[in-house]
Design a protein around this nucleic acid. Structure first.
Lengths: 225, 225, 225, 225
DNA sequence: CATGAATGAGCCTTCATTCAT
DNA sequence: CATGAATGAAGGCTCATTCAT
């Protein structure tokens, strides 16, 4: 009756288990169906927990969503960090390759990791209140690092706008395979991206971008016009 | 600018008026909030028509959505056609520039046109039943045309996969500015894309892509590896 | 513009045609689906007339229903009159047989006629405002005639309650095959009643009833207890 | 009679209470107005529960209707079982009398029980998806038992068709007083059936049927023609 | 801590009816 | 006479949330 001892529920799980299971399941469901299309009931049924548990642990639906986003981000970046094993002293070509490979794998990778990508894609197109935080904590550091690599590749004194646009070109190519997945699937009957396809994609984007940025550097000395 | 004469009295509107007004309003609301988040009540209230009018004119919510998609597509492509004034005999470099400019303007353009882009972006990230039709009727023709230009640029006998990946690189760069708009807005405090920014973006993408594809053509004769 | 000449509609039909076609179609649909389940739209679509025609010709849905009921009743009784060719001087056994045959055929008969039966069955179980009229104009004359036959069969001075109950027994047997049709269909996999089955049913009911009423007459002199 | 203690406060009801109250109220309303005419809003208002409770406890309107049907059936058959206190070794005349009395009381009886009859009557005339189940679980066993009694009464080797038709005659007489109630009420100004009238009806039907079946048995040895 | 039951708001849809032509 | 368009009321259902235990 009294909250004296560590309580376990009928199935003998600690509260933390319930919380984590909701987090995991909600990640899948949100990634698959989006925020609005997802019902708390579905999440709870999938997770095998009571329907009131979400409101208990996370306050409300939005609270759960924010928690999921944060959790997924941590998991993804722990597995695929920005530098992907390169040092800042390595040649910029190599660093760009590493960056792209890490980025593409992080958003397209199978299983647990891919959920992060899907969630982010949704956040892009239909921002929730979480986007501000996501931009500052996740996207800006990422973009800053990419910009520094691109700036180095462009040679001395590139215009900042050129750096920005080239960085955007790199990121745009990568993200395309994430958010256009449903279209690509229909265009080419290509169902899913396996590790092999992901590698090929990363290689292509790196090559394509290095060619382009190299030409910018050579012909214009990194300066437009 | 002002509805000078057509409006006679409270109910005195041409039949087409109600239908079109729903179509216009729905385009805005769907583009802003997405299919699921949008209620037909809101559309009808905004359009100043009875809620049953949607059912009468379009059958149901999905019917309305499809009609909106088709309508927006027609408007956008009538204003910015695929070739954008180039002939198939023009040099591929010029055709690619025209394609990119037309494409970017169509999805980023202001006012009426931009709704098409937003609707498409949503369809990418959270497909409805309409996506199949959209892919076949809109996206595939577009991708086919782009591929033929890229194939020509790559020189003789390029691998189809290379064509596909390079086309994807072009499209990915363009779409990035569409779906990443909320992020870009936050990253660089850049509120909206005006005609000038759109032109700059189109120019950059064309240049970036022509450099890259040109390098592919030169160094590999269009063949990878 | 002015109502000077006899107007015909696009298909060149006189107004009477439209009215009658609605009447016919509505009879089918009401009989099949019941009053509430039937929509004006469905009737008008089936009849190929405008949706406003019903309200124009019959005031509203209920007005149409009443008109249908009256129309069907006339058709059915014109084809299968009460006496079915017997005279009031004929022996009561023969008159009962004729009554039963006429009754059963009227309510079970195929095609046009059966619709009357179905409509009546529905009116029994879920009376509309039409029931009062139907009882006085259709059912009471019918019951009165049956009672006079039964009274004659029961011999001299039968109790009125006995007459009533025996008449009810006759009518009950007949109607059973009408309203229990969906159940009979499921119980015995017997899909529909053809002319042959109808005759067999009428014969059985007549025989069963004559045996029973005969026994009442013999053993009790028509008096109970 | 009075809800003395169970009700503690506004929301303080046993979980089963809400469910059962819906079940009871829905039984009344469905019996009175039919499936289609009944709104779950009305049921919930009458039962004093929230409109979403139906969805929670029974899934949807049809689920509620099926639950009501099953519940009413149980109540009715618990009170008036098929055999009504007779053993299978009793003489068939007595068994038929018991069967008829039980049957008539079950469908005409006052109060709680009568709802079963009304629901069944509606199911006959305007079948829902529930009819298949009702026929197999309720009507067929009933008809089988009646047939075995009739078969015994008809003597040795009766034709199955004769058994069936005689059984139909019995059932038809009984049901008549159920579904024709609105008509009988108008024909004879007889408002309702009390226990006394019900007994008289049952006695008459039994007598009428025993006379008839007896005559079949005697004159034809149970064989027609 | 956790739960099953219950709630109220809101959504899409349907329908009979009316209106101006 | 007849019509297509438009209306408003209502119905079934869903969902996030809250409540008492």
């Amino acid at each position: 009756m009294f909250d004296t001892i560590k309580q376990t529920n009928v199935t003998g799980e600690t509260p933390a288990d319930t919380r984590k299971r909701i987090l995991e399941t909600a990640g899948e469901v949100f990634a698959m169906s989006g925020y609005r299309n997802t019902t708390i009931r579905e999440i709870c049924r999938s997770a095998g927990v009571n329907i009131a548990a979400v409101n208990y642990h996370f306050g409300n639906k939005e609270g759960l969503y924010l928690a999921v986003l944060k959790y997924r981000q941590e998991v993804a970046f722990r597995k695929y960090p920005l530098d992907f094993g390169t040092a800042s002293t390595d040649p910029p070509e190599e660093r760009l390759r590493a960056f792209i490979r890490s980025f593409v794998t992080r958003i397209l990778g199978e299983g647990e990791v891919s959920r992060f990508g899907r969630l982010m894609a949704r956040e892009y197109i239909e921002p929730t209140n979480a986007l501000d935080t996501v931009v500052e904590e996740t996207i800006r550091p990422l973009f800053t690092r990419l910009s520094s690599i691109v700036r180095q590749l462009l040679g001395r004194k590139p215009k900042e706008e050129t750096v920005r646009l080239c960085s955007a070109s790199v990121v745009g190519q990568c993200l395309y395979f994430l958010y256009a997945a449903p279209v690509i699937k229909r265009l080419f009957q290509q169902p899913e991206f396996g590790p092999k396809e992901i590698e090929a994609i990363a290689d292509h984007i790196a090559e394509f971008s290095l060619y382009a940025i190299g030409s910018f550097a050579v012909r214009k000395g990194g300066e437009k016009g």
